[in-house]
Write a protein that binds this DNA or RNA. Structure first.
Lengths: 221, 221
DNA sequence: CATGAATTTTAAGTGAATCTTAAGGCGGCT
DNA sequence: AGCCGCCTTAAGATTCACTTAAAATTCATG
């Protein structure tokens, strides 16, 4: 689960990032309104935590702009403002929840879980350097640009990313991606690795998809 | 929109009922935990407003029982208890929000709207390039010209637009648009996509409704 | 109820995209 | 140097979606 924090006070941002990472979330931080908006547009997140008062754009502006672009990512405001008018304005702008500072981390955590809950199946996502693979929507991005992959290309990349850092033997790949369980001598894997590297523009210098001669392949970042 | 209030203090119950009815909601009231539970099970509601302290069963018990029966109706706790432990317990039990008394009616109203939003809030209009789909009036326009769609055509387009930018798998489409929950292989989706593209005059060059071979379709602009 | 029109679903032929096979070339390893 | 294994490309096989037409169902109407 990926969370973006948009918060300008470094102390609070650090505290949140650390706490959420300990809970197993992948956390990015943006320090200004425009930076947060750009980041949220660039990559898919599962949840946004947005401070109300921000340099550049207010949190309210960020929220409005995202919703205007049909971005329905759950968004929780995190703020010292606690007048009723502000709460209402925030929720009307399309926010999903609103927590007043000072807050207890436990409560924030639970409210985050509530927002992620209705998303149903956990949207499985894997990353490899600049590459993001979303299993549920069958989409792949490199540097925030969407890359169109065919079924087999996607399945192969998914298998390598699920085993990131581990060397995958050719035999395992054939069994898991092609579902062939007898000995089989073929060049399909080579052909597909070639297609993947081409589409993802991975050069020989990159080490994202390495060949292990005589064994198989590894994905590492 | 139907709301059930479970609250034992007659004054508060009456105040809420009147306020919500003025906003156009259909409101029922139950005064005890067991009565509320029975009422919620007997009829479908769009939202439950539940007091924490109730005679018979606590609000927490009511919430737990409903969730245990796979009832996912949005539920908001309404309570004087304001310790962090209680908030967390409430959210963990499956509640969607938690408002502390005393609260402003305006804030409650907005939080109710947030919960109802995904099921039909204010943003009932979707756009895709020159195409506009209005859910509430069941109308579709392209370049300000109205296009007549049948029910299934409309439902399919609505589903794709609600998930704009995300790839929709054939399986998800069959489940959400046709409400078929077992495996089913058929060509209906193809036929309807064809009809949609024809009526909306979408050519192969347009990328509004793209096919993802082997997976499904995406709407993008 | 019976009829006809509109909508929804099934079915089949066609064509294009994807998958697989195969072969030549290149580079590392012994 | 020579072998083996990987890369690359292109052509054949196959799968899947598009398209059309006809059958089944639903809906409104007399």
């Amino acid at each position: 689960m990926r969370i973006l924090i948009v918060e300008d006070e470094p102390g609070i941002a650090r505290f949140l990032k650390q706490g959420l990472e300990e809970e197993g979330f992948a956390v990015d931080v943006a320090a200004t309104g425009p930076a947060g908006l750009a980041q949220a547009q660039a990559q898919p997140y599962d949840l946004l935590l947005v401070d109300w008062m921000l340099p550049g754009l207010t949190g309210l502006d960020v929220c409005r702009q995202l919703r205007a672009q049909q971005d329905q990512t759950p968004l929780i405001f995190l703020t010292a403002k606690d007048t009723v008018q502000d709460t209402i304005a925030g929720l009307q702008a399309g926010a999903n929840d609103y927590i007043k500072k000072p807050f207890h981390f436990e409560e924030l955590l639970e409210r985050i879980r509530v927002q992620l809950r209705p998303a149903g199946g956990p949207s499985e996502r894997f990353t490899l350097g600049p590459i993001v693979l979303d299993v549920s929507t069958h989409q792949v991005y490199k540097d925030d640009e969407e890359i169109a992959l065919t079924q087999k290309e996607f399945a192969l990349l998914e298998y390598l990313l699920r085993n990131k850092g581990k060397v995958c033997r050719r035999q395992s790949i054939i069994e898991n991606v092609w579902d062939i369980h007898f000995e089989y001598n073929t060049g399909v894997i080579d052909v597909y690795m070639n297609a993947l590297r081409k589409k993802l523009k991975i050069t020989k210098d990159d080490e994202f998809l390495q060949t292990i001669r005589g064994i198989g392949y590894v994905a590492r970042d």
